[in-house]
């Protein structure tokens, strides 16, 4: 499989007088069609990294390749067309007077024919469950609804790469899980690559690989399961401890010994039921 994104030894600081680098030698790659979650504490460099990839910031040194092409000052506008970026606070991104105008904005700029545009807007709104709100004012929607619209706007452009920077943080847990599953289906259908910065355990669990960032560096790259087995450390990485890991710990203090440190809810249910039904 080819790499969709490759990042080599990025160094970056916001201000020359800054003592430490915000990014200090960041290297990683994302495969074509992969869903990569990036986690880490506030200030670890997650958002800075994706802003460099989208060419919104320029690195002091290091290289970024998007679909094999090196990102430079000259091609940044072309490269950006390949990337759909959704930020945490959608208020800063709304331009349309109605929800559907807003979703259509990017398509209009790109010169997509009217008929095709209408189809894509309708599809995108359906995917994020916001069809009923097509003619509403974006400003009057809730935080979670606004985030859905922002995601619809990005999806409608059919980019090869989607970058979500805490883009579902304002959604309720059920709505978020549903939307992430929808995004995964879109990813499968169009073969998109997804990078998602998140604090959400459910979302991390659904991703192909997790990158942990710490003090401007890549601390580790692992499967979600390997990450979740790290227990209490997860708190320091800006995540919660999975519900099952907490329960396993409490059960152990009561003499119910579950061997593994991390199990999915289904697996723990199996093991516990086996123990309980024998007792």
């Amino acid at each position: 499989m080819t790499n969709s994104i490759e990042v080599r030894d990025l160094k970056f600081k916001y201000d020359q007088e800054q003592e430490h680098y915000t990014l200090n030698g960041v290297s990683f790659h994302v495969k074509q069609g992969e869903w990569l979650s990036i986690i880490g504490h506030n200030g670890s460099g997650k958002s800075t990294t994706v802003r460099l990839i989208d060419g919104l910031l320029e690195a002091e040194s290091g290289k970024i390749y998007i679909e094999g092409q090196e990102l430079t000052e000259d091609n940044v506008w072309d490269v950006r067309h390949k990337i759909g970026m959704v930020f945490q606070n959608p208020d800063n991104q709304f331009v349309g007077a109605t929800v559907e105008d807003d979703v259509a904005f990017g398509l209009e700029n790109k010169g997509v024919p009217l008929e095709e545009m209408q189809i894509r807007v309708k599809e995108a709104l359906e995917l994020v469950g916001m069809t009923a709100f097509a003619e509403r004012e974006p400003a009057r929607l809730s935080g979670g609804q606004k985030q859905r619209i922002a995601i619809a706007g990005a999806v409608a452009m059919r980019p090869n790469i989607i970058i979500l920077d805490e883009a579902t943080s304002m959604l309720d847990p059920e709505g978020r899980l549903e939307l992430i599953k929808t995004m995964k289906a879109i990813r499968d259908q169009y073969g998109m690559t997804v990078i998602s910065i998140t604090h959400d355990l459910d979302e991390v669990a659904l991703s192909d690989r997790v990158l942990v960032m710490k003090n401007g560096q890549v601390e580790s790259s692992s499967t979600p399961r390997e990450l979740f087995a790290r227990g209490e450390e997860l708190l320091a990485l800006g995540l919660d401890i999975p519900f099952t890991a907490n329960l396993i710990k409490l059960l152990r203090t009561d003499g119910i010994n579950i061997k593994d440190d991390y199990l999915t809810e289904k697996e723990l249910e199996e093991q516990l039921w086996e123990l309980l039904s024998k007792a």
Binding site: E174, F243, E265, L268, W273, L276, S277
Partner: peptide
């Protein structure tokens, strides 16, 4: 109603369905 319940409540309900 798409609201859900606490995680442990759901977990306990699944065990109950198995016969606990």
């Amino acid at each position: 109603k798409q609201l859900g319940v606490p995680k442990i409540t759901k977990f306990a309900q699944n065990l109950r369905k198995r016969g606990f």
